[in-house]
Design a protein around this nucleic acid. Sequence first.
RNA 1: GGCGCCGUAGCUCAAUUGGUUAGAGUACUGGACUGUCGAUCCAGUGGUUGCGGGUUCGAGUCCCGUCGGCGUCGCCA
Length: 591
Amino acid sequence: MLRTHTCGELRSSNKDNTVTLCGWVDSYRDHGGTVFVDLRDRYGLTQVVFGPTGEDALTPIAKTLRGEDVIKVTGVVAPRPDGTVNPKLQTGEIEVHAQQLEILNKCNKAPFFPTQMDLPGEDLRLKHRYIDLRRPEMQQTLLLRSRIIKGMRDYFDENNFIDVETPILGRSTPEGARDYLVPSRIHAGKFFALPQSPQLYKQILMMAGYDRYVQVARCFRDEDLRADRQPEFTQLDMEMSFVEMDDIVGMIDGLVAKLAKDILGIDVPTPLPRMTYDEAMERFGHDAPDLRYGMELIDCTDLAAEAEFRVFKMVSESGGRVRGINAKQGGEKYSRRDIDKLTDYVIQDFGAKGMAWFKVDADGKLNSTIAKNFSDDLLAKIAERMGAEPGDLLLFSADEWDVTCRVLNGLRRRLAAEMKLYNPNDMNFSWVVEFPMFEFDSEANRWVAMHHPFTAPRPQDVALLDSDPAKARAIAYDLVINGSEAGGGTIRIHDSNVQKKVFNLLGMDEASAQERFGFLLDALQLGAPPHGGIALGIDRFVMLFGKLDSIRDCIAFPKTQKATDMMTGAPGEVDQKQLRELHVRSVKPHE
RNA sequence: GGCGCCGUAGCUCAAUUGGUUAGAGUACUGGACUGUCGAUCCAGUGGUUGCGGGUUCGAGUCCCGUCGGCGUCGCCA
């Protein structure tokens, strides 16, 4: 090693030691006769002094040091003079009096500095990621990520899981997300796909007798990005045999409690609370509700039917729903202008046709531009149903059920954030269970699997696969943290006949099911144990445990919203020769 | 693909209703200084206002297009 210590470890007890430190110049203070340099590495900062007590010849060289130069300094540890101890630094009681200085690498014209107060734009941070990653905040996040992954690995190791790697080059399955494709050189015209998840491999491992499998698995989905979504992301993937839902959920309960304790120092009581999908949608309008605050959805469809107000009346008579939320004491905070903005928001983002609202007067009466379309008696009933008190703001969505869900979930989240209804440091863990097996895709005019096509229906719902697929519920469970889906899993189908039936329901005839998933159907008839599992989104765990707003801050080298790497410039052009070898011709758009 | 926000010095930002030579802080360069720790003081360098077009006597500012970053809807089994 070029160094004897890190920049975070010297204390008064090292007095008179001769030490060698290496690191980056965090800052320098040139006083003429004396030059102070704060030397930084990922362990901390140490003040190095060049001056009359050190080698005089060093001072002229020390004067040339600038931010982010990489240097090696040898010197003697000394207590700082009285009155110059820096309590902000862990090493603040000492300083190193330099005797030798070597500039290992000069930093010329840095586009920005890890030390600067106002962070530069994210594009610049991503382009020069090596500078951004020097920031203590980024280093803490990557350390947190490392600790979370180690905590997970240790936990599953203690529980007798085997870590098995699965292929990155696999077969494309048109179901689900868009695949990243890799052309095959050896097989002209054929392609591998990068895995959206190791789903089928881990099921096959169960059939192979590896009854407790775990993997930190990189997954790829070629879909549009969001603040919490990257095209390549990391899952803690696990699968168990001879289990029921409670076994998987209980195993994860234990993991969550351990991580919360070890990482955040909080006690999370287990078992974590569970709620069915239907209840979540009814009470919160979303399958991953944020339970850190109330403001639940309240149904007023029956009352709306009595109103003269055309929108309410028509919606309730045509099978739609009229639901609302009560923003407690929101009447003053939200002006008419603010409410107009909320209306634009729900129209623009969720396809709402409008938003009805009432403010609750000091005497408890509902007041709004639409109030004249309601009898006093009806207004009183609505107020009572909504638990209205003076000063409250009531917001309503009247539309088809799914629209009211989207609109009110959006409003609920936005208002809760704006009105600070929860402490951002609070952590809430829960399960949402019993998801529907299928959703009807009106564009494709067919059923699609809500989770994936290998999800087992509840035993009592198997008959519904034939009679009423919409009503069939899956043995599925999502882990929800603070209103985010942090993971999801299911018990899998282990009966080839049920699997064939589901494939059939999803519009696959026997031949194409055999073509795509024949290996699975075969395996399901050659000794398949009952099994199930779950995958946790590690990037999101880091986001939530680290209180970060962007998934990009949890990943060392993330992609931009347009799925590019600003540092390397990927994706990039390739030679014609490479394309020819791959039997691929590139056709640019508009040509 | 839709909607929205942003783009001015290396960096972070300002620039009145469209009006003179586009400013400040910081970084950088030179100088002063033996105890600072966001060091201080003096002086200086630094600009195709992302790019292209348009409106106007006049555009950083208004309009259209385009590129890039971000947010969001669709999408994400």
